[in-house]
């Protein structure tokens, strides 16, 4: 491929996939100075996530990608995102069988038989980036916080390691990193989404079961999705203002 043609193609494909601010951010990224990505104004964004259970095939790509991208400890057992397999016998939503072998990192070896009278499905889990986060509420020093663009983040240089936030999260999304003794959790790939990229889990998802959305951007397809699907958040009774919306969420999921 000659250089000119490559450049031309690069330009046109870039236009295909990126627009405006995202593209400028992307250029800064390619220059190898991502922190200089311009044009990102925190007040112009409000991030959320769509997880479509009807599309999840339990391949574990998101779990692996997340650990790769965010340097999550492989062992012993910590996850920023993980996938659960539900097996609900005969619609008994109060007693589902659930497993998540190594968080889904190695995929899910077949365990159930087709036609056993139960329904089975995968449920990817991650931080819900709640608008009224119980974890942020309980942090005694302000080491975990909600960014102006709606992402719940951790300040590892300020975290005491008191673990109160781990107790306060109803979804089990937080863990103490054994290397730093500070709390860690999904950052919604803040280093990516502020540069016009999507999260690592969305990037790696082969079925678009997870899609990042900017709720403040009227052109973002998330609005169309939320309009045309019956969505639910996890544990709505907790009233945490979760911004991770599930399509096709079964009543047995908790």
């Amino acid at each position: 491929m000659n250089r000119d043609r490559r450049d031309f193609l690069a330009q046109s494909t870039k236009l295909l996939f990126l627009t405006g601010a995202a593209q400028l951010g992307f250029e800064a990224l390619l220059r190898g100075e991502p922190e200089a990505a311009p044009n990102y104004k925190t007040t112009d964004h409000w991030w959320g996530m769509i997880i479509d259970i009807e599309k999840c095939i339990g391949c574990g790509n998101c779990v692996r990608a997340c650990k790769e991208e965010n340097d999550v400890p492989r062992e012993p057992y910590y996850f920023r995102t993980w996938v659960e397999r539900y097996h609900v016998p005969d619609g008994d939503i109060e007693r589902p069988q659930v497993d998540s072998p190594n968080g889904g990192y190695d995929g899910f070896p077949e365990k159930y038989r087709a036609g056993d009278g139960a329904k089975s499905f995968f449920v990817p889990k991650m931080c819900n980036h709640c608008a009224h986060s119980p974890c942020v509420q309980v942090c005694p020093v302000g080491a975990t916080f909600e960014s102006p663009d709606g992402v719940v983040l951790v300040d590892p240089t300020y975290c005491l390691g008191c673990r109160y936030c781990v107790q306060a999260c109803p979804y089990g999304c937080r863990y103490i990193d054994p290397r730093t003794h500070t709390v860690d959790k999904c950052s919604l790939c803040y280093h990516r989404i502020t540069k016009g990229l999507t999260t690592a889990c969305c990037e790696a998802c082969p079925t678009e079961a997870r899609v990042l959305g900017d709720l403040k951007d009227p052109k973002d397809p998330i609005h169309e999705f939320l309009r045309t699907h019956k969505v639910q958040v996890l544990k709505p009774q907790m009233a945490t203002g979760s911004k991770t919306y599930y399509n096709g969420l079964d009543g047995s999921v908790r």
Binding site: Q137, V138, C159, L160
Partner: peptide, 28 residues
């Protein structure tokens, strides 16, 4: 015991410097 339990005991002064008023623990 609280001090001993912290992941970063040396940061415990932060509780006095920047207490998060919404936190039940901060006021301790």
């Amino acid at each position: 015991p609280l001090q001993l339990h912290l992941g970063h005991p040396e940061r415990s002064l932060e509780m006095y410097l920047t207490p998060h008023t919404a936190s039940a623990m901060a006021m301790f």
